[in-house]
Design a protein around this nucleic acid. Sequence first.
RNA 1: GCGGGCGUGGUGGAAUGGUAGACACAUGGCACUUAAAAUGCCUGGGCCGAAAGGCCGUGCCGGUUCGAAUCCGGCCGCCCGCACCA
Length: 740
Amino acid sequence: MSRYNAKESEPKWQAAWEAAGVFQADVDPTREKYYVLEMFPYPSGRIHIGHVRNYTMGDVVARYKFSKGFNVLHPMGWDAFGMPAENAAMASGGHPKDWTYDNIDAMRAQMRPLGLSIDWTREFATCDPEYYGQQQALFLDFLEAGLVYRKNAVVNWDPVDMTVLANEQVIDGKGWRSGAEVERRELTQWFFKISDMSEDLLTALDGLDDWPAKVRLMQENWIGKSRGLRFAFARTDGGEPIEVYTTRPDTLMGASFVGISPDHPLARAIADKNTDAANFIAQCRQGGTTEEALETGEKLGFDTGVFVQHPLDPDWHLPVWIANFILMDYGTGAIFACPAHDQRDLDFCRKYGLPVIDTFFATDDPTPAADTAFVPPKEQAVRWVNHFAGLDIATGQEAIDATIARAEADGWGTGVTQFRLRDWGLSRQRYWGCPIPVVHCDTCGVVPEKKANLPIALPYDDGNGKPIDFSIPGNPLDRHPNWCDTPCPACGAPAKRETDTMDTFVDSSWYYARFTAPRANTPTDAKAAAYWMNVDQYIGGIEHAILHLLYSRFFARAMIATGHLPDTAAEPFNALFTQGMVTHAIYQTNDAAGRAVYHYPDDVDLRDGGAFLRATGAEVTVVPSAKMSKSKKNVVDPDDIIDQYGADVARWFVLSDSPPDRDVEWTAAGADAAWRFINRIWTMAYNIARMEDQGATAADAALRQALHKTIHSVTQNIESFGFNSAIAQIHSFANVLAKS
RNA sequence: GCGGGCGUGGUGGAAUGGUAGACACAUGGCACUUAAAAUGCCUGGGCCGAAAGGCCGUGCCGGUUCGAAUCCGGCCGCCCGCACCA
C-alpha cells in the first residue's frame, strides 16, 4: 500500500479545478452571493507562512460557502505601490516596476500550489495603469464633490532625501534612512475630508456586530469624540482674543495661565518681532528636540508678556505662554491651564513658578491639597462662590454640563463637540505611487485633469532614454525633463502636472470594490457592485485595525456620494476577522564576546528535552514563540514545507491547535503531526474503498450518529471561526472511524 | 496617564452557568519487526491507593448560585492599543 503522495495528487486536482473554472465567479441574480476576501498582499517577493494562514482561513470559508450552494466571490490581487520598490531600486539599481512585477510573478507561483479557491481571472495589481487610472477618476470625482482639498500642513521633512516622511519613518527625530535631523516644514498637500464624516464613522461602528469589539474600540478611540466648551479670552492689550477649547470647564477657577501652541498665529506674530520667541519656536520645531522632550516629558515654555482677562472676572489677569506641549491641530491650538487638575499643567507651573490654585478649596474644604505649591488667596474662593452661586457644583460630568450651560446662558462660551480624527493627507513626494491627476497652470491655478486623459501614467525612464536614477535624492518625477509638461485642461496654455503621488493607503481603500468588476472602464460597474457588495467576510491582520479599515470605510462613503457604490455599501465589510501571527522559536547561542548568535531551525537538533546544534552538539537556548524575523533566523519557508509535505499539510497545520485569532507557533513536531494525520485519512479512505469494492456497506448506526455529530460541530465551528476545534472534531471522528 | 484583553496539565488548547482538561504535541509503555523506520493501540493534572475508589485542583482573596474556569467585587501578573488630544 502506498502513502499519500502530495506531489502527485495536489497538482492533479488543482489542474482539474483550473480546467473546469470551478472558482470563477459570475454575477447570477438567481443565486445568493457570498464575498470572502483576505487582505491582499504587498509583493515583497516571497510569501511567508503568515500569508498561508491568512489565505487558508479565507479558503476554508469560501469552500464552506461553495458547498452550501452560495455563489462565492474569492479574489486575489496585489497592493503593489510603495517605498520598498524604490528602496530596492536604490539598493540594486533596477526599476521599481520590474522589481514589483517580478515579485508578483514569484509570489503567484508560490501561491498557486496552495490550491486556494481563488478566482484568478479577477487578479490585478494596484500599480497596473488600468487600476490606478480608475483611482485617478475617483479622485477627480471626489474633488468635484468637495471630498478632497488642498491646504498647507506641517510635515516631517527629510532635508537629505528631500522628501516627506511618515511619522513611522522618523526615528529619534532623524530620517530612518538618511539619518538626517528631521525638520517640520510647511507644504501644500492634498487632504481627504475624512473629518467631515467623523460622527457617522463613529456611530456606524455600533452596527458592525460581526467585527471584533477590540477593533471597533480602537477606531472609536482614534476618532476620539469629546464634548467641551469653546470660549475666548479677551486680551488686556486689545488684541485678537485667544480662543480655547476645554473638556473641563468646571476647573476654570483654577486657571493659572493661557498656553498657545508654537504654531499658533499669535506665537508667530510675536516671533516676527521678538528673536527670543522666534528661537524658542525654532527649538520646538526641531523634530529631534520635540521627540526627546516628549520622551522625557520636559515642558518648555516662553512668556509672551501678553495678558488676558479671566472670562468670569475681568480684573483677574492671566499670562499667556507659548508651550511646546500644545498641539496646533487639536482644538484651537490654545488652552487654559489648570495645574490642580492636570499633571502636565502642574509640571509646567512648577517649572516656571506660576501659581497653582486648588479649585477644590472653593467647595467646602478650605484646605489645599497637600502637594500643591500655591495656597490660594481668599478672594479666589469668594470669586468661585460668587460666580457659581446657584450652580450645583457636583463633581464630574454634572459640573461640566452645568458650566457649559452657564457659559452659553451668559453668552461667553459655546458647548462644542470635538474630534481627534484629522483629515487624511494623501500627498507623497514619491515616484512609485498613483500620480495625482491635477495640473498647475499659471493662469488657471490648480486644474483637474480631463477624464479622457486618464490614466496619467508613470514614466518608465528618465526622459533622456536612460533608466531613472533612484540614488539621487528627491522625487524623480520632479526632475523628469518633460513628463510634467502638459497643456492646461482649462485654457490649453502650457502647464505643469502635479508630481506628487498618492499615499498607498488610497490604493487599498477601494480594491474590494474593484474586485467586483476588475475590467470595467469605470471604477466600478453598477450591476456587479450591487450584486457582490458588501464583502461578507474580510480576513486580515490586526495591524490594520485603524488606518486601512477606517480609510476603507471613508472611501466607501465617498464612493456612494459620487455614485460609484450603492447606498447599502457604506460599511463595505459586513464581518471582519483578525487572525494571529505564525510564530517560531528562536534558537540562540552566544559568541565569545557574549553576543547573541542565531541559528536556523534546520541547524538545530531537538532531542532529550533540549536543543543542540547539529554541527557542534553545543546546547542552544530556545526562546519560544517569537514573531518570525529574518535577522533572528526563526523563519520557515512555505516552499520548503510544501516541497516536503505538500500544501494540504501546511494548510492543515496552520489551522490546528491555536484559535485563529491567536498566534500559532510553527513547530516541526506539529508539521509532522499534520503530515501523519493526512496520511492516516488517506490510508483509511484507501481501506474503506477496498472494503466497499468487496461489497461492504457502511450502515453502522453508531458510526452514522458520530458522523452527523461531527458534521454538525464542524459546521458550527467553521461558522464561528473555531477552525482549531473543527480540526479536533475531525480527529475525533477519525478515531471513531478507525475503531469501527 | 487613558482604554481594552488575557491568566486552565510538561506544551498548544477545549469547555460561555451543568461530568474541567475534548483534540493534538511531548513523555512512558505495548503490538507488529531479526532489527530499525513506519504504523496501530494503551497511558497521559496532583496526592493517597494493589485496585475499586477517594480527596484536591482552572493566578490569589471574597461574593452570587442547588451548581462557577465561566457571572460580580477586590488584588497580583502578563499582553495589546492610544497618548503632551487640553
